[in-house]
C-alpha cells in the first residue's frame, strides 16, 4: 500500500472506531415523549454512520462531475482518471447509503421501503450511476469512453439536487428526519461530537480508497504504455 493511502486509511479507521465508541458509550440514547411516557429510540444510533456515509457519497459524486468537467476542458488524461475514481468511490458509498437506509427504515418505521423524497432520490441515484458504469463498459474506444464518462458524470451530478427538489414538490410528504438546517444542527454535545468524529473518519477513509483506485488506474495506464513500447521497439 502506498504510504499516503495507508496513513489516511488508518487515520480514518481509528476515527471511525472512536466514532463507534462515542456513539454507543458516550452519546445519550435518543428519547421520544409519547403521552408522558419516555421511549428510547435505539435505532437512532444508526444515524451516526448512515449520515456520514450519505454525505461522503455526495462529496465524491460531486467531485466526479467536477473532475469530469475539468477533463473536457483540458483533455488531460489524469482528470479523467480522477473523475472515474471519484465516481466509483462515490458509488460504493451510495450502495452503503441504500443498505443502511433500508435497515434504518425497517427499524424506525417498521417497513423496508417508503416512497419518500430522500429514499427515492437515492434509489434514482443508484440507478443513474449504475448506468454510468454500464455506459463506460459499452464503449470500446478509449477516448470515447473518457468523453462519455465525463459527460455523464456531469449530467448525473447536476441531476442529484434536481431529483431531491422534485421529490418535495409532490404529495409525498417528507417524513425523513432533518438534522441539519440553515439554523444549524439540531443536536449538541456528545451526540454532535460522535457524529462529527464519524463524519471525518468516513471522509478520510473514503479519500484513501480514492487514492488507491487512482493508483490502480495509473498503474494500468503505465502497463498499456509499456506494452506499446515493447511492440514498437
Amino acid at each position: 500500500m502506498k504510504k499516503s493511502s495507508l496513513i489516511l486509511a488508518s487515520a480514518g479507521a481509528l476515527l471511525l472506531m472512536a466514532g463507534v465508541y462515542l456513539a454507543f458509550f458516550v452519546a445519550p440514547d435518543a428519547v421520544v415523549r409519547i403521552d408522558d411516557r419516555e421511549l428510547v429510540r435505539y435505532s437512532q444510533k444508526i444515524f451516526y454512520f448512515h449520515v456520514p456515509v450519505a454525505e461522503t457519497s455526495f462529496v465524491f459524486l460531486l467531485l466526479g462531475g467536477l473532475f469530469g468537467a475539468m477533463y473536457l476542458g483540458t483533455r488531460k488524461r489524469s482528470y479523467e482518471q480522477m473523475s472515474y475514481a471519484a465516481v466509483e468511490v462515490g458509488f460504493i458509498f451510495v450502495l452503503l447509503v441504500m443498505i443502511t437506509g433500508v435497515l434504518w427504515t425497517r427499524a424506525d418505521w417498521g417497513v423496508w421501503w417508503e416512497w419518500e423524497p430522500r429514499l427515492t432520490t437515492f434509489l434514482v441515484l443508484t440507478l443513474m450511476y449504475s448506468g454510468y458504469f454500464v455506459l463506460r463498459s459499452s464503449v470500446q474506444e478509449e477516448s470515447a469512453k473518457a468523453r462519455f464518462g465525463a459527460i455523464f458524470s456531469i449530467i448525473a451530478a447536476v441531476n442529484v439536487p434536481l431529483t431531491f427538489v422534485a421529490g418535495r414538490l409532490d404529495s409525498l410528504k417528507p417524513v425523513h428526519p432533518t438534522v441539519f438546517t440553515l439554523q444549524g444542527a439540531s443536536m449538541e454535545g456528545p451526540m454532535l461530537a460522535a457524529f462529527l468524529v464519524s463524519m471525518f473518519g468516513m471522509l478520510l477513509f473514503a479519500t484513501s480508497l480514492y487514492i488507491m483506485r487512482l493508483d490502480l488506474l495509473r498503474a494500468r495506464e503505465d502497463i498499456e504504455y509499456l506494452k506499446e513500447e515493447l511492440e514498437v521497439g
Binding site: V124, S130, L135, F148, I151, F152, L169
Partner: peptide, 27 residues
C-alpha cells in the same frame, strides 16, 4: 447521441435517459 455511439446502441438510451428525466416526470 451518446447511446447511439455505444455497442448496445438503442438499448443504452433508457438506462441513461430515465433516471435523468425522473425529476421532470415527478413535476
Amino acid at each position: 447521441t451518446i447511446s447511439i455511439n455505444t455497442k448496445t446502441r438503442d438499448l443504452m438510451l433508457p438506462i441513461l435517459f430515465l433516471p435523468v428525466i425522473i425529476p421532470l416526470l415527478i413535476a
